[in-house]
Design a protein around this nucleic acid. Structure first.
Lengths: 341, 341
DNA sequence: CCGGAGATCGGAACCGCTTCCAAACCCTCA
DNA sequence: TGAGGGTTTGGAAGCGGTTCCGATCTCCGG
């Protein structure tokens, strides 16, 4: 099959003008049934595809959106959260007629990305935050390019955003622990700099204080969402023999690390130490014991982000919309609650 | 800053014709120092960027390459291998002047991807295989688009490819085990359908037979590279009380699963069971005990793929090149070898 | 039988850039 | 001083589409 046909060649073969071909390509009215028929046959026979580049130039739309995701450290993509999020983005994008592609922006390439970002190649951007790179964000902001954030970042609230209600999630985890009667609770939090983890913290603290449970300072630790940090914190508590009776971990990965450390140090879960995580990564259900955790609808987050973005592109609406999805407690076995069914 | 300037506006402000501006943009000769100077100043002052779309149309080059990666199951991106590979791709791409973007192709969107792929938007493609989707591959093949494969797939050897020498890796793992004197060795292999895992298997089997070590059929199992599969296999062996003295796992993720199971079943590693993995994922060094494994240069794989691809794009060379990178045994503690320093 | 509305079509301008080519310019050397 | 060579320049034609608009065709009712 020779390819690389142009619209003119199609026109010629179909005995019509290029305008007519363009019209059938775009489902415009005012083309006779016979003409349409002929054009379609030529297209079919020669497997013709219009050049998206030319179309882009003419219409100033590319039907492509770009997902910009940070790469910090080797681990950034290394857990089940990301593929799920991307799937939501990719698939919903295609459904809505947009091709989505992903780029990792690391510090050393930030300005090149910025260059690329600016040149109107894309109709819009999704910034996977938890640390938007400021350069890129401010460029996008200045350009007025349609952009939506995944995750919260109040310094960029001119952008639309999608996130879950982190405080609510923390609250439910806390409630669960309190309902089960635990009173000595340890908190393994995420970095103080992430609004997300601040909210999770506030949520659980509210639950505890409502239940009249206080947490000791020595039982509050800050990790960085990595498995290693969870491991280290629990190990430290074990060494000092000040293990709490229950643990709240601000991420499943930290919970996994904690679980590992608990295991090594001989604590039985949940008999001696209960543990609740956050995220409900695919791996959570395979943990030993299966992890009770706060599920966040990751795939849906991706979908929602695309919806927001596409709406913004297509309506030229510029007022930011902030969407919050509801998290949901998933009770498994790591807290000792009896499970239903 | 108003933006969206066109080359004509720049030309006007700099008192030259659009041709001159184009020449300075592309570092072409034959523009006087003064003219160049004026043009550059206007560009600078107005923060002008040429439209890559228009440029693309005119030159038939986009300086973009696309990485197509399969999404099968939620776990496909879920380990440290991917971010490393992508970093290699992205960063080397930028170094060579190409913007690389990633798309996940799942079955339900395959034909849309194919559409997109064909329309000359990209200068080339990297297929992350271990299961190239046939539709996409054959389209690319038919179009003669520059394409390179990461991983091996002999049914597509018209494409250039990058891979490591899997047999060699398997061989070194086997040698290590034999050198340490293990004689009862279990093999936890990857799927038979993956050439990669067939090669790994052949490698270790050669090492064992050279050392005169035989492996019992009951000690050969096929997993799917997932942690769960490693876990399940070891658990089965434990239940039947036929645990080998040493384990070769065809991937680190399976090794992690195996480690977990070993732990649960009360086997000490490496005192009672030695274990060697494959890949050297970032997580391998944090395992308990740190995992002896065959390191594959993942980042370099990404780089090499881009190099091959860009060379092919720029020289219009169509003969495929098959590159094999060398794996390397990384001795840590899971096999009981004494470590240097 | 004619005028006019509506459907259909083709011509041409345009999107923003590259590139070929001929024209203008500047020097140098015979 | 004038021819000839090399620089520098601008004009114009593409690249492959979309879209506006005026021309043509059809068909109907008066």
């Amino acid at each position: 099959m020779e390819d690389d046909m142009t619209i003119d060649q199609v026109a010629e073969l179909a005995y019509v003008s290029r305008s007519v071909v363009s019209r059938v390509l775009n489902d415009h009215p005012n083309v006779s049934a016979e003409a349409r028929e002929r054009v379609l046959r030529v297209i079919e026979e020669h497997d013709y595809r219009p050049s998206s580049v030319a179309r882009s130039l003419a219409t100033d739309r590319s039907f492509e959106v770009s997902v910009l995701t940070p790469r910090r450290g080797d681990e950034s993509l290394a857990n089940g959260y990301w593929p799920l999020l991307y799937s939501g983005l990719f698939e919903r994008g295609l459904e809505r007629g947009y091709f989505v592609s992903l780029s990792m922006v690391s510090d050393q390439v930030e300005d090149e990305i910025e260059d690329r970002a600016r040149d109107a190649r894309f109709d819009g951007y999704v910034l996977v935050t938890t640390e938007v790179t400021d350069l890129v964000a401010s460029t996008l902001d200045a350009d007025g390019a349609p952009t939506v954030l995944i995750g919260q970042d109040s310094s960029w609230d001119a952008f639309s955003s999608v996130d879950i209600d982190n405080a609510q999630g923390g609250y439910e985890a806390g409630r669960h622990l309190c309902d089960l009667g635990y009173e000595e609770i340890g908190l393994i939090l995420g970095s103080r700099d992430l609004e997300e983890s601040t909210h999770r913290r506030r949520g659980i603290e509210r639950a505890l204080s409502e239940a009249g449970v206080a947490v000791a300072d020595r039982h509050v630790a800050e990790g960085d969402y990595s498995q290693e940090s969870g491991h280290a914190i629990v190990q430290a508590w074990a060494e000092r023999a000040q293990m709490p009776r229950a643990l709240f971990c601000a991420s499943d990965t930290m919970a996994m690390g904690a679980l590992l450390a608990l295991n090594e140090c001989g604590y039985k879960v949940p008999e001696e130490v209960a543990i609740v995580g956050f995220d409900d990564l695919p791996a959570a259900q395979y943990a030993i014991p299966p992890l009770t955790t706060v599920r966040q609808p990751v795939y849906e987050k991706g979908q929602a982000a695309i919806d927001l973005l596409v709406d913004q592109i297509e309506t030229a609406e510029t007022d930011p919309v902030h969407t919050e999805l509801a998290p949901e407690l998933v009770v498994r076995q790591s807290c000792g609650a009896q499970q239903e069914t």
